[in-house]
Design a protein around this nucleic acid. Sequence first.
RNA 1: GGGGCCGUAGCCCAACGGCAGAGGCACGCGGUUUAGGUCCGCGCCAGUGCGGGUUCGAAUCCCGCCGGCCCUACCA
Length: 935
Amino acid sequence: MSEHAETPADIPPYRYTAATANAIEAHWQDFWQEQGTFHAPNPVGPLADPAHPRSGAPKQFVLDMFPYPSGAGLHVGHPLGFIGTDVFARFQRMAGFNVLHTMGFDSFGLPAEQYAVQTGTHPRITTERNVERYRAQLRMLGLGHDDRRSVATTDVEFYRWTQWIFLQVFNSWYDAEQGKARPISELVEKLAADPAWAAKSATEQRAIINEHRLAYVSEAPVNWCPGLGTVLANEEVTSDGRSERGNFPVFKRSLKQWMMRITAYGDRLIDDLDTLDWPEPIKAMQRNWIGRSTGAHIAFPVDGADPIRVFTTRPDTLYGATYMVVAPEHELVDGIVPAAWPEGTHEVWTGGHDTPAAAVAAYRAEAAAKTEVERQADAKVKTGVFTGAYATNPVNGARVPVFIADYVLAGYGTGAIMAVPGQDERDWEFAEVFELPIIRTVQPTEGFDGKAFTGEGPAINSGMLDGLGIAEAKEKIIAWLEAEGHGQGAVTYRLRDWLFSRQRYWGEPFPIVYGADGQAIALPESMLPLELPEVDDFSPKTFEPDDATSSPETPLSRAKEWVEVELDLGNGPQTYIRETNTMPQWAGSCWYQLRYLDPTNEQAFVDPANEAYWVGPQSAGDSGGVDLYVGGVEHAVLHLLYARFWHKVLFDLGHVSSFEPYHRLFNQGYIQAYAYKDDRGAYIPAEEVAEEQPTVFTWNGEKVNREYGKMGKSLKNVVTPDEMCERYGADTFRVYEMSMGPLEVSRPWETRAVVGAYRFLQRVWRTVVDEQTGGVAVVDAPASDDLRRLLHRTVAGVREDMAALRFNTAIAKLIELTNALTKAGATPREIAEPLVLMLAPIAPHIAEELWSKLGHDGSLTFVDFPVADPALLTADLVTYPVQVNGKVRGRIEVAADAAEADIRTAALAEVAATLAGKDPKKVIVVPNRLVSIVA
RNA sequence: GGGGCCGUAGCCCAACGGCAGAGGCACGCGGUUUAGGUCCGCGCCAGUGCGGGUUCGAAUCCCGCCGGCCCUACCA
C-alpha cells in the first residue's frame, strides 16, 4: 500500500489533514492532562475542590464496563462503548452536570497467568505492561477520563478493599425474618441466649456460626474443569457442559469450596429489577437465571422409610399424582429400595432386572455415563426404572409407585417430584412408556385433543377442589396441607449459591486462615491487605481436559512459608494455615465503581458522603446507583448478578446508601467484521481483498469467500484504532464510530467508509479556517434567516439526540448544518460558534482547536451547550400536502399560525378539481403535517 | 420445545400513526490537478421480508408466515 506523501504540493497548507489532526490531538490531550480538565470534584476528601465550576452541581456518574487488559491490545471494536460514554459525558458536562467518568482495569485473570506459564514472566509484569498499553491507546482516543480515579483490580491498594468486602460478607448472615444481611455478631448474641450454647466447645460454636455465614465453605458437587485446573461457577459453564473460557469439558465433582449465599437474595434480586432502567431482555435473562417458582412442598409417606418430599408448582393437581420420580443420584433412594420386586410388579417397570437394587444400580450407572450432550439428545425418550417402593398420596391415600428417572434433576427443588401426567407433558410421556394411570384433574377446554393439559380450567376428579380454578385450588390445597401437616407453600429458585473459590495464582488471596480445628477464621481488618506471595511456580496445575478423576491443586499451596503462618488472633501466637484458593475474576468487578468515587481513601472503601453524592438515591424509592452503565450483553447474568448481590450486602450492612449498583444499563452493539477465505479454507488478509462487484470478492485475482463475524488475529481482519488515528486522526475515528448507527446496534466495520467522517471534519474546519492562510475565515455579519433557523432546529435536535444517546442522528444533523454553511459561502460567527460547541462532545480535539481559533481562552469543556430559541423552530409558512383518499392531490402554503378552518378551506379549494363537486365525507387537518380528505 | 430482538436503496443507517430519506459509503458525471489520488459540486438508487387486519392514513399498531441473530432448555 502506498503511504500518504507528507504534504503534497497541491494540498492547501492549512487543510485539516491527518497530520494536522494528530498535532492538534496531541496538543489538547497534553493540555487536558496538565489542566486536570476532567477531574471531577468530590464533596469531601482529597478529591474535593470547592472552587471547581461544577462543584456541588447535579451529578452524572457515567461508567463503562471496565476491560480486561489483554496482550493483544484494542481493535476498533473495543472502544465503541468507551467513545459513546465519552460523548455523553462531555455533553453532560456542557449541560451543567458534574460528571464522573473514568476507566479502570479488570486485571486479574487467566490470560496473564497462562502467558506467564509460557514465558516465565510474572503475571504482574505482563499485566502492568498491558495496562500501560491500554492507557496509551485510550489516551490517543481523547477520552475525557478523570485519571486520578483509575484503578486496577490487581493493585494491592485496590484488592485490599476487595478482601475487606469479602470479610463483610463472611462476617454476616442472612436474617430471613428481616429479609436482610446482619453482622454475624448479632447472630452470636441470639444463639448465646440459649443456655445450651455455652455448653458447646469453641470449635462446635464456630462450626455452627460458619454454617450461617454469607460466605461459607462447603463440600458439594461443583464444576471441576481439569483442562483449566480449576473449579467454575454455574454461570461459567455452558449448557453443553463445557467451560465458557477455553471450551474444556466440565465434570461434577464433590469438592470443598467457598460459596457465597446469593440464593438468600433471590427474591430481592428479582423484585428490585423493577426499580432499574435496564433493557427488558437483560431483566428477563436475570429473572430466568434466578428462576423463582412458587408452589408447595408436599411430603409423601413411604412404608418403613422417611417420607419423600417433593416440590411442585401445581399442588392443585395433587389428586392426579399417580406416581413419583426421584433423581437417580438422590440419597434417599438406597433407603427405600426393597430386597425384591413387590407382588405383581409390571414387567416394563423392572428394566429386566431380577431385583430392584440391581435395576437401580444399572440405571444409575447408565445415567452417570451419559454426557450432558447425550442426555439432551436422549431427552425425547423417557427412561427410568421402578425402585420397588410405594409412597402414599397424602390427599387420598392412594399407593403410588416410586421411580427413578433422569428427567428429574437432583439439583432442583427437592430432587423428587410427584408426577401428574394429566397436567404435565413430561409426566404424560413417562406414563405412556411405563403404562401408568393418567387422571385428569383440570377440565380441558372444549375441543382439546392433546395429551397433558396445562391450561386453565376447573378442577375435576379432585374431591374438595372440584370446580375451583387453578389459583383458588392451589390456595385451598396448600391451606389443607399445612393444616394436616403434609406440606406447606414454598418458593424455590433455579439459582444456586455462587462458587467463589478458584485454584489459581493470579487472583485475590482470601483473608482467611485455618486453626488447628480446621475451622475457617477471618483475618482482622488490620492485617489487610493480604498480599499474594512471590512464588517460583505460579502456574496452575492443569490436567488432560477429560481426566475427570483429577483433583485441583492450588498454586498458592506450594508457597509453604506463606501458607504456614504464626499469628496472634486473640488467643496468643499460634500456627495457622492460610487459605490457598483465590477469588474469581468477578470479585473485583463486583464493586470497582464504588472505588472510583473515592480512590485515594485509606480509611474506607468509599466515604459515605462521596457515595451518597455520586450514587445515593435521588428520591424516595430510587435505587440509587450509576447513572449510565454501558457494556455488552454478555455480562447479563454473570457480572451484573454478582455485583448486584455484593452491593445489596453492603447496603444491608449500612456501608452504602444505594441498594442497586447500576441504575441505568445500556447494552452497546458490537463492531463486527468481514473475513475472507480462499478455496482451501485459509484466511486471507481482509485489507488485501478487492470487491470485484457486489458479493464477488477476489484476492490476487483469485475468488475468495466472505464471512461475517468477529474481528480477530486468526481471521486476519483486525483493524486497530492506532491505524485509524494515524490515517485520519482520533476525531475522525470517533465521528465514524458514532455515525455508523445507533449505539445499541451491531454493525460491520468498513474502513473505506471512514473517509466520510474525515471529509465532514475537513468541511467544518474549512468553514472556520482559511486553508491558504490559516487565518480565521469567520465573518461577524449576521446569518441569513434560513441559516439561523436551520441552526436552531439543529441545536434542538442535537440536544435531544445527545441526551438519548442517538449520536448517529446528531452527527447527521451537524453534517446537514455544515453542508448548508459550506453552501452559504462566508461563515457567520453566530453559526460557527454553536456548531463548534455541538461538535465538541463527538470530536473534542478539533472543536477545542477551532474554539481557540475563534478567540476563546482555555477549554470549552464547561462552556454551555447551545440552547435553541423556540421562536426560531417554526417556519412562518407551512406547506401542507393535501391527500384525497390517501393520495397526494395538491399542496397548499399557509401561515404557520393559520386557523384550522382556513387550512381546511384552502385545502378543499386546492383539490376542488379532484373532488369534482362532491361533498367530502371527512376532512382531517393534522397541524403542521397535512390535510387528509375522504371523498 | 420455550422466551426475546431484528428485516427500509448495492452497503451502514433516518423517518411523534401523517408527502418513505436525515447523514455516510459505494457508484456515475462535472470542476480542481501534468496524471492518479485528494478536495469541491451535482446526480443516481428503495416503496419498507411475505400475507392479512385496524385506521381517513401503516415502515411504524395487531395477527399469521418466511429469514437472520441472541438467551434458555426435561426447572417439576
